[in-house]
């Protein structure tokens, strides 16, 4: 066999392998939109469910997910960014900080269901918050914390030392240098990483199953100590737990969930693209 032919076959099979993997997935998503699309009406998005999920919309689940996402941001963003600033800009690099870094990287790889178990044990039972928005938000916040710390650390380390030196040499204090030069420079990357992490948390089911989410509460929560509906858990529930829910409603919920999560990812991608353009100018 000629070498040219070998090359054609080799690269050709790579192309086949790529499209073999990607096209079915795209077809499935197209099918999802085809079946679920008609279910998405103004009423579906803005009305509460009734008849134990068989009728009505998913408004409380959307609100619940937005509430949980907000809670995740409140818990994880300041703690994560503050920790990264301390680790990169203040702490001395020694065995202890290396240990912390390894712990953080490993926690980012711990399965989300383990966080769910932790949240159930600590917040719901031990601290007696019960199943509630606050317990769910704390669990998701802790889940996202290592991701945000790692992303922010990487972004801060990527800021050239030239900037720090130039600022210090002008008589700026340590904090002036960080707050006016280092953080603004790193912020787009920090936000990109953080939003991706938060988007992931917004779509998580296992951590909120037993810390927060309810199958059927048509009314909106009154306080952060109330249980809420949440989109990912709602999808799980209508697919497996509640019989005789029209299929289109489940598909519709899946599309809304994908839209929220992908919307968050899209924001991150736009920030990153803008940043790339700016840096190459």
């Amino acid at each position: 066999m000629s070498r040219k032919l070998k090359e054609k076959i080799g690269f050709g099979s790579l192309a086949v392998c790529t499209f073999l993997a990607i096209i079915p997935v795209l077809l499935i998503i197209a099918y999802l939109i085809y079946v679920g699309g008609p279910a998405i009406t103004w009423e579906f998005i803005t009305q509460p469910p009734h008849g134990f999920l068989k009728e009505g919309g998913i408004f409380p689940a959307i609100i619940g997910t937005l509430g949980l996402t907000t809670g995740t941001i409140i818990v994880a963003l300041p703690l994560g960014i503050g920790t990264a600033i301390y680790l990169v800009e203040y702490s001395k690099q020694n065995f202890f900080t290396t240990l912390i870094r390894i712990a953080i990287i490993n926690l980012a790889g711990v399965p989300s269901v383990v966080y769910g178990l932790f949240g159930l044990g600590l917040f719901v039972l031990m601290l007696n918050f019960g199943r509630s928005l606050v317990a769910g938000a704390l669990t998701l916040g802790f889940l996202t914390l290592p991701v945000i710390i790692s992303a922010a650390e990487e972004a801060l380390i990527a800021v050239p030392d030239d900037y720090r030196n130039a600022s210090l040499a002008l008589g700026a204090t340590h904090w002036q240098t960080i707050s006016r030069i280092v953080l603004p420079t790193a912020m787009p990357s920090i936000l990109t990483g953080a939003i991706l992490g938060i988007g992931r948390a917004a779509g998580e089911t296992a951590p909120i199953m037993f810390t927060c989410a309810a199958i059927y509460i048509p009314s909106l929560p009154n306080s952060i100590f109330d249980q809420v509906m949440a989109l990912p858990y709602h999808l799980y529930a209508v697919a497996t737990q509640v019989p005789n829910v029209p299929e289109s409603k489940a598909f519709g919920a899946a599309i809304v969930l994908i839209a929220i999560v992908c919307g968050l990812n899209l924001i991150a991608i736009i920030i990153r693209t803008k940043m790339r353009l700016k840096n190459t100018r």
């Binding site: 997935v25 499935i28 999802l32 991706l196 988007g199 992931r200 917004a202 779509g203 998580e204 089911t205 990912p232 858990y233 999808l235 799980y236 697919a239 497996t240 299929e247 489940a250 899946a254 969930l257 994908i258 999560v261 992908c262 990812n265 991608i269």
Partner: peptide, 17 residues
Amino acid sequence: ELLAGIPSVVYGFIGLI
């Protein structure tokens, strides 16, 4: 990247249905 962002419950749902 889009596929990476889809929540696992959606994959489960597609797998199931």
